[in-house]
Amino acid sequence: MAKRTALKDKNKPADGINPRQPCPCGSGKRYKACHGGAGGAADVIVARPFEGLRAEAELIALREFVPSATVKLPLKDQGAREVFLASVLPMAAAGVIRGDGTAFVGLQVQTRSGDLSRDLARAVRWALTAETGEALPVVGPDDGSDPGRLQDLLDPEAGITPELHADFGWWMPPGSEPTGEVALSLERANAAVLPTERVSAPGVTAAYWVDAGDKAHLRWVRPEPEERLLAAMARLSVRGELDLGEGSRYAGSFRAHGLLVPVWDLDREMHSSEWAGPAEGLGKRLSDALTSLDTEPLTEAERRSRDGLRGRQITLR
């Protein structure tokens, strides 16, 4: 028995994370194939890398499921070179200085660090001084430098409104044509784009309509702590108020970088703009339900509903 225990302890990861579970970094890979693999990051994984930024929810959306989008970063140093954040860059590069001198930093990249915010800060600092035509393929393991974090470079009170694109033509300067590996990467990226629109309405941020082919979805990154949000959603569910009206139903949720992302199935025949009003209404109902939690504890029915919602986890494909 002692030998078996010793063997188990020997094979158990030092950080206590099950190798078969999703990596806490949010990559979607199993831990053993990501930060728990050979050569993985030795530093602590930051589960909520964008915490403290007003743009946190939008950054998570760009990182996780918005296919083609760009936005100017609200740098604290307004005299610095303009840097644009991009969902995906050619060949999934961490940074690119386009032929016309425009600087881009990619969000959907592979890294070996446990802190996505720190990786992005390193990429931004690279972009501020890199030459036209240069590319940063990947932000590698810690090299001993101290780039700070994205929170150190951005105005924490500044929100962002990403510009969504139908394809990845913006990779190239106006009037230029891609060649070689860039052309191949562009072709593959364009073929994988799911039509996506930002749902804009008062009180609605980081909510995106996505046409997945067989159906449409609303994916909404919420800033509230998970348990509090689930409690408010349970209160609405018991009242039959958790959908967006006719042609919609609550599908489930997934976790991304410390926040919960509820998802609704939508009538694919309706235009994305038709969901702005319903989303605004749902946002108000959620806000009221969140406020009511301070004075009205959950009922037995609401607690059962919360437990059911907690188990409705979905996986993006």
Rank of each mutant, 00 (worst) to 15 (best):
R239G: 11
A256W: 00
A183D: 01
L120R: 08
N18M: 14
E246I: 15
P262C: 09
P141Y: 03
L154C: 07
E134C: 06
S248Q: 06
A201R: 02
S248W: 02
L194D: 05
A191L: 08
A189D: 04
A127S: 07
V261T: 06
A41P: 02
A216I: 12
P225C: 11
A47L: 05
E131Q: 14
T111W: 02
V66C: 03
S248P: 02
G240L: 04
A251D: 09
T179E: 06
D243P: 00
A47M: 06
L309Q: 11
W220R: 08
A2Q: 08
G175M: 06
D77K: 09
P225I: 14
G281K: 04
Y208F: 11
I45K: 00
A301M: 09
L242T: 06
D288M: 07
L164K: 13
A38F: 14
G36P: 01
P174L: 12
F65W: 09
E157D: 13
R48D: 09
A41C: 11
I60R: 01
A42N: 05
A127T: 07
L73C: 07
E58D: 14
T291A: 12
L286Q: 07
V124M: 04
D15C: 15
K10N: 02
L236H: 04
R4Q: 15
R149D: 06
I60Y: 04
K76Y: 02
L7S: 03
R228T: 09
R255Y: 01
I160V: 09
R239A: 15
G39W: 03
G28W: 00
R112C: 01
G28H: 01
L290T: 08
V199F: 11
E241R: 15
H217K: 06
G283P: 02
E181N: 13
H35L: 13
A301W: 02
Q313N: 10
P22G: 00
D100L: 12
D146S: 13
T70H: 04
R255T: 09
T179L: 10
G16W: 12
V109T: 15
M233K: 03
G277T: 14
M1A: 04
M172A: 04
A207S: 10
F254Q: 03
R149Q: 04
Q108I: 03
A166I: 11
M91E: 07
T132V: 11
G283A: 15
M91Q: 11
P278G: 06
D115F: 08
E51L: 10
E300Y: 14
K215C: 05
D119I: 04
A183Q: 06
K10P: 05
T315M: 15
A103E: 11
L128V: 15
A94T: 08
P178W: 07
R255H: 04
T291W: 07
E64F: 02
R268Q: 13
G169H: 05
